[in-house]
Design a protein around this nucleic acid. Structure first.
Lengths: 171, 171
DNA sequence: GGAGGAAAGCTTCCATGGAAGACAATATAA
DNA sequence: TTATATTGTCTTCCATGGAAGCTTTCCTCC
């Protein structure tokens, strides 16, 4: 019933042998976080793939869907919401448009702008895919009991708050 | 002094409005984990870049360094240690070899095999880069107090253990 | 010992995203 | 009003990694 040392612990042990001058304790957190995130992403992508979507496309459809009717957003907004560059968003929209899941039209107010909108097919697809996605997330999180999950969420929320705010300067 | 709702909380609120039939609680954990991991990776890469390294190259050099003298490993071992395909490892080694940081030679025992070894320059570079990397990890983790960090590590270790073992079937 | 299968590394092709710049349209300043 | 800066999107080029298949070598079993 003993835990035989996980991958990260083995890496730490090796570093302690090779570089006893360094305190590699942070790897215990950061290394495992990275690893959990990688494994989770992999599992999540498996569900996206069932609907013919990559992670990027799923994110864009989800951002449009949760915007509420009429399910429209500017490319720039989508970029901000999905944490990628506008160039990446352009390509994601290209793919989604080709697949008939979104449309692109000119904005009425600002002639530089464009409006990306979910089509009926896109709406229908993301509704199914998102429900399946959430089901999947429940399964993945079932490895933790509710108290652990709550603790983890609280810790991550606090860390994120101190990691993220590099934005928002005082006006 | 109030927390104005972080990015993930806003996403959850939008989904609760649009899809009240779904329980999006897991996003509170998984979404934030993903986000923390992304931000951390970004910060870590900034340090790698100071040494002219990408994440992939850093990982390979680190794996060689912590192997201990004479700092050698087979490409397949490197692939296993760094969680990427052997094809990706081949390309990483190509780049590192071109930069004079590693050498590649034939294995003596098995003529299919190759041995990748750190050069003097590679050893020297990864020793500096790794020390800087650990310093950086300490800084990033300083946002949490030691008790929080320990809690977080324990939770992630447990989750990882239940997420990872898809390997190791009983013989 | 020879045949078939497995293993190791590499190659090819492709998908994705970032960085930086091009362009058009709008906002701001003089 | 004209000149300048800024904004929003898209384009181009490049870097990286995965998937699948190839080649060589080794292993196993008959």
């Amino acid at each position: 019933m003993e835990q035989p040392l996980d991958h990260v612990a083995r890496i730490q042990a090796a570093w302690r042998r090779e570089r006893p001058d360094l305190d590699v304790a942070p790897q215990g957190v950061i290394g495992r976080l990275h690893r959990v995130a990688t494994l989770l992403t992999h599992e999540l992508c498996a569900v996206y793939a069932r609907y013919g979507l990559g992670e990027g496309e799923f994110d864009v459809l989800a951002a449009l869907r949760r915007a509420g009717a009429p399910y429209e957003r500017a490319p720039g907004e989508l970029a901000a919401h999905t944490m990628v560059t506008t160039g990446a968003v352009t390509k994601r929209i290209d793919r989604l448009e080709r697949a008939g899941l979104v449309t692109r039209r000119a904005a009425t107010e600002d002639r530089r702008g464009r409006v990306v909108a979910l089509t009926g097919a896109g709406r229908e697809l993301i509704d199914r895919a998102f429900a399946d996605h959430i089901r999947n997330e429940h399964e993945l999180l079932a490895a933790l009991d509710p108290a652990e999950a709550a603790q983890l969420e609280a810790l991550l929320t606090g860390w994120l708050a101190r990691l993220e705010p590099p934005a928002a300067p005082a006006p």
